[in-house]
Design a protein around this nucleic acid. Structure first.
Lengths: 346, 346
DNA sequence: AAATTTTAATGAAACGTTTCAAAAAATGAC
DNA sequence: GTCATTTTTTGAAACGTTTCATTAAAATTT
């Protein structure tokens, strides 16, 4: 019967309700409309099964209430959690989320930005590694874990504090000779501060340590070699390791075990990220400095959507916390005497 | 200088290049245009930094090259992996992905469908639980793990075969008294077939078994109670457990350990999903029936985008495989004699 | 070189909204 | 009951594309 089989438009609703197009628009936008007209329009809309066409609306209003989240991929729990929280927060505010994955490729990062820009998103939250990323100044942008410039707000956890916390915890739990293992892409970012924090704490407290960095994202060999070199008569000459990610921490534990070293008895290990597989159900997991993923996500969303974007902080560091797991000896707590002679606050 | 500070449009490009609007459009759409004009247009576009406005294009062409993926949330590795593969596949084909999370709420599932429909996505891939979901017949839709109707293609792994495989493996590895643990939302779906497959194999091979189902998504108590009841003099009266998810398997292992039962020596456990934390780096993980997540994702995308959507299969089951982990005794392999007197193929 | 055919370029209309100036209706004051 | 004022409703224009019927130009044939 219907002339058109396609989805009904506002024009159809207007005809059905016997009012003008503008009135229909006013109803849906909460403008002043008499009660009787309002009812007529709403009834017609229901009857026809009318749904707003956001593409048409976006064209006219120049805002789409869609934002993009760009990250390497949701195959890593940290990114997956981030995507989840961001998506949830956006939906609650009536926004939609476009997910773009880059697989750590700088080219893809740029391409994704282009892609979502064409799609007229209202803003971008990005977790990128390309230091030369070209960012359109006119499009609201919030960066996670990478500082670009004064005009691009960056959100991260307090990586420096996380580094010091890891060092402190290891020592409190009885470790005396520490190692820092860092596996990371070649470019620098906020997470580098984990190392700085760790080293600075060790130096200040006169704890011997060593840092080993592998810039190849997949290469565990440097760590493997080092571990082997350091085992004399079946005993390692270190007793605490801080890894810059939980993933690395798991691998290191594996390596240690394969070399006959037991964790946490011989060597204690602390990771970074606070990945909790399957909620909190899976114990034991690696002991870790946990990032406040949810708060970071909420902060990113709120900054991106903030009405006044002219006075946003350049860098926002959210607090981390220590989560005991199966790779540290929580039974062993040493009242560690700190440099200034007092116990530091937790 | 520029009259307008906003992003340049095709009209601006046309003016800059000294050609008509239609010609600019033709250039970007690969229609027949003389070489000289083409160059003029492309140069003008580059100079102005022109980017197509996909909202305007979508309005006119009625297709947005955006598809929606709806799932409970990317906080679960299975969904996260699925999202990742789908997103990747779509991007490779020039599509964008909108992610909508439902947190297992039937209402949210419907709301998400409404939301992405308004957004004029070209199709939906959904992993939903609401059995009464209203699906618009005119919008391409592919369901994962839930069968809706003949007109909605459903993709899943071969859950039934997975169930039989789990039972078979447990027996091959020496288990003789089996348990099936199922924790699931109250509604039925393809994954229910895991139980059917498991039970049927056990019955056919005369292996004693018992199935325990908890319909409350979070309630592990039934399993805990059962395990305790079944321990006499420190020894359980079962020696193999098949859990319908890896997550549950981890919890069960935990429960067993807390009750003084060692895995896999006393009891062997097999989960379902094949979640691999952090790629393949983390060993040991739970032994598992692994779902072909990537193939499922690719299949879903290809079906959704298929040119001829009239002859799509109603249900597509992709093959599963067994992945040994730390919760089974791979050292113990019994040449199990099957019902028909022959060794079944793997 | 004129007539014909083929090819390329043009510009107006349309997609489904919002917006806004103008018209119409309702209300209030006298 | 008229006029002034306020409130509500209307309908055309615009957003940035694509499409398509025309027109113009080029190529081919006579």
């Amino acid at each position: 019967m219907n002339k058109k089989t396609s989805t009904p438009t506002m024009k159809d609703v207007a005809r059905e309700a016997g009012v003008s197009l503008g009135t229909v628009s006013n109803v849906f936008n909460g403008a002043q409309v008499s009660e009787s007209y309002k009812i007529k329009v709403e009834e017609a809309a229901r009857k026809l099964g009318y749904k707003v066409n956001r593409y048409a609306r976006g064209l006219k209003t120049n805002q789409t209430r869609t934002i993009a989240f760009i990250c390497p991929g949701t195959d890593h729990p940290f990114f997956a959690d981030m995507a989840n929280y961001i998506s949830k927060a956006l939906q609650e505010q009536g926004y939609r989320m476009m997910l773009a994955v880059t697989q750590y490729s700088p080219d893809m990062e740029q391409k994704c930005i282009q892609m979502v820009t064409e799609n007229k998103v209202d803003g971008i939250i990005a977790l990128t590694y390309n230091p030369d990323l070209i960012i359109d100044e006119n499009l609201p942008f919030v960066s996670i874990d990478r500082f670009y410039s004064e005009s691009v707000p960056c959100i991260s956890c307090d990586n420096y504090a996380g580094g010091t916390l890891a060092a402190r915890k290891l020592c409190e739990l009885g470790a005396t000779k520490l190692l820092f293992f860092n596996i990371a892409p070649a470019v620098s970012g906020e997470p580098d501060k984990r190392q700085a924090g760790f080293e600075s704490w060790c130096r200040f407290h006169n704890v011997p340590f060593e840092s080993i960095v592998s810039s190849d994202d997949q290469a565990f060999r440097p760590f493997l070699n080092l571990v082997r070199d350091r085992i004399h008569d079946g005993k390692p000459d270190f007793d605490g390791i801080f890894c810059n990610t939980d993933k690395l921490a798991y691998v290191i534990c594996q390596i240690l075990k394969e070399n006959g070293i037991s964790v946490p008895e011989d060597v204690q290990v602390i990771g970074f990220d606070g990945i909790n597989m399957f909620g909190d159900n899976m114990m034991p997991c690696v002991s870790s400095i946990v990032q406040p993923v949810e708060q970071m996500a909420l902060q990113a969303v709120s900054m991106l959507l903030s009405a006044d974007r002219t006075h946003l902080p350049t860098l926002t560091c959210l607090p981390v916390r220590y989560r005991p797991g199966g790779t540290t000896r929580e039974d062993f707590v040493k009242e560690y005497i700190y440099g200034n002679g007092e116990k530091e606050p937790n």
